[in-house]
């Protein structure tokens, strides 16, 4: 499969948040400030790429040959949790400044649907190693893109007069609805 097509479709057209609705929980929580959005986005890219590639390797070399397809879910989620745990310990020890800006988001990402989704998707679509790498980078890049756009809009919205019932998250969903509509325009790209 054409790698550029894969990248574009994963980032923009089948955007994980707007098209697939995955990764919404942290999306709503972290998108109030652009600064935290950027931090979260970078952390997510790192975790999804690392964890998904490792999961793919685990599947190809251990689970599939042994016919243990049904153990996929348990193994992947444990691998993701372990990966995040080790990453957090590593960053905390080696770079306190990086830990301050990114580290607090890491535990949140473990239960982020997006990580597990990408790991499962790579296997389900039957991607080879290169395609797995491309997909595992493209999806969180799309996530971060949406996160930053969203945060920018929400920051601007703070000064506005939002009806009481819509304050906070409901208005965020209206924004998401409009963004989803806007991004469907890209559907014809590939």
């Amino acid at each position: 499969m054409n790698l550029l097509t894969l990248f574009l479709s994963a980032t923009l057209i089948n955007n994980i948040i707007l098209a697939k609705f995955i990764g919404m929980c942290p999306f709503m929580g972290v998108s109030t400030r652009v600064k935290s959005a950027v931090g979260m986005g970078l952390a997510v890219i790192f975790v999804i790429f690392g964890a998904s590639v490792l999961s793919w390797l685990l599947y190809q070399f251990v689970l599939a040959p042994l016919g243990l397809d049904y153990m996929k879910l348990i193994c992947f989620i444990l691998l993701i949790a372990a990966f995040v745990q080790f990453t957090e310990m590593f960053i905390k020890k080696n770079s306190p400044s990086l830990y301050k800006s990114l580290g607090i988001y890491l535990p949140l990402i473990t239960t982020n649907c997006a990580v597990l989704h990408v790991a499962l998707d790579n296997v389900a679509q039957g991607y080879n190693f290169i395609e797995t790498c491309v997909n595992s980078i493209a999806v969180p890049v799309g996530f971060m893109l949406m996160l930053v756009i969203f945060a920018t809009i929400r920051e601007r919205l703070e000064g506005n007069d939002v009806p009481a019932a819509f304050e906070g998250n409901p208005i965020a969903f209206i924004i998401a609805a409009i963004m989803a509509l806007a991004f469907t325009a890209l559907n014809g790209l590939v």
């Binding site: 707007l18 098209a19 609705f21 209206i174 989803a180």
Partner: peptide, 8 residues
Amino acid sequence: TTQTGAFL
């Protein structure tokens, strides 16, 4: 039935 409708 699309994403927009879901968010809305």
